[in-house]
Nucleic acid binder design. Structure first.
Lengths: 224, 224
DNA sequence: GACTGATTCAACCGATTGATTAACACTTGA
DNA sequence: TCAAGTGTTAATCAATCGGTTGAATCAGTC
């Protein structure tokens, strides 16, 4: 049996199991007994440590966000507004952002099932956010949107703020959709291991985004 | 009260209520009693008419798909491969597709709550498809993907099939993400009624897609 | 060894789940 | 008129839900 010398991190195991199970079967589809069994713990501990099921769910979400979302913001320089070198800085900043975002977004399939679960949880929460988790969600996503949007004005100074917002949405959306709907995309493609070359994928998103945004550099051929 | 002369379409009312409730609270979060009450029917009828809860869910999905997804494929001419007029035909076909898709996608907020629920159901099923509904989902989505993909080769004859697939994904993805994540997008924008001008939105997606794809016509300015 | 607070446990709670049943109302066709 | 069939209902089923309880076990501290 090996009664497993009472880990003092039962709490952590519960959170980890919760992330896994909530991602697999959703909030309502998962029972606390199921989670507890996955963590080799007693179901009553959910109430003891997290004040109930919803508290555990919120804690699982918070863990996912702080572990997957936040760590990205480290490598970001900030481009200026209409200053002389701003255009080139914005161009490089945007490209770096796309690369970092995509790398972070796609670097989980083969590695850690917990990473994959974290992505599923995040995606589900973004699509239909519970009222309790909306603030948490917004808090962790806002910086990304802000940084992306900060890159755009220098590249398209002729557009107003709403048009730039739409640009940002299209850029972000193509990537998030690719990640969130990977299941159906693989079905459509008929290849269960579709994104075989990550670098090619990244380069596509960068090119498509820069062209879509209207950056001349990304649009080489003047005539067909 | 109006004991409502025994409709012989209790079945239909159950499906309608099921769409509404399943969209609002998910499959596991919705009880058949809740659905039955919404349809002013007895919960036992779920088993009688649909062989249980899952049968009702599947029937609701089928209704949503045939009502929301299928009707689009009517107005589509088919562009050819490398024939003389194929490029122009593909260009017009793609633009018509985007316009029709977006119109269909966004024309439900103010009109019918059932339409909105249908979109939510579809989005959720695309993100995490149940194994039982995957064939249904694929069957109804495949024609869209096929048509979109058929437009691309004539516009970028220099690209291989995988690159074109990525193009199609980016085009489709930006729109689906906009629709599916409308909630979080409105939060980020701070405007609960964000897409105020549908035509402007459509035009943006068309322009962004054509530029991203690499169509010179959509990329007017040669120099900033 | 005695005491304390934190942690974990089996057992149980009322409530609700999806499903089933037997009876009932009604139409239809023989 | 009777029998069969369809649609509907209230009542009930076992199973499971999230949560609570009181006792047991743990690590420290005195």
């Amino acid at each position: 049996m090996a009664p497993s010398p009472p880990h003092q991190d039962t709490r952590s195991r519960l959170i980890e199991s919760a992330i896994l199970h909530f991602a697999a079967k959703g909030y309502d589809g998962t029972g606390i007994r199921e989670i507890a069994k996955g963590a080799q713990a007693n179901s009553a501990l959910v109430a003891y440590h997290f004040c109930g099921k919803e508290g555990l769910y919120l804690e699982a979400l918070r863990t996912v966000f702080t572990r997957k979302v936040s760590p990205l913001t480290g490598l970001n320089p900030i481009p200026a507004a209409g200053t002389p070198g701003s255009r080139q800085a914005a161009l490089e900043g945007l490209e770096a952002y796309l690369r970092a975002f995509l790398t972070k977004l796609m670097s989980c399939d083969s590695s850690d099932p917990l990473d994959e679960a974290a992505m599923v949880l995040m995606a589900r929460e973004m699509q239909s956010p519970r009222k309790v988790s909306a603030p948490l969600l917004l808090e962790h996503i806002q910086p990304y949107a802000t940084y992306l949007m900060a890159c755009l004005p220098a590249l398209r100074p002729d557009l107003d703020e709403e048009a730039l917002f739409l640009m940002g949405n299209s850029i972000q959306g193509q990537m998030l959709h690719f990640r969130n709907s990977l299941g159906i995309i693989r079905l459509l493609r008929g290849n269960p291991a579709f994104p075989e070359d990550l670098e090619k994928l990244i380069q596509h998103f960068i090119d498509f985004s820069l062209r879509g945004l209207g950056v001349p550099e990304a649009f080489p051929q003047p005539r067909n």
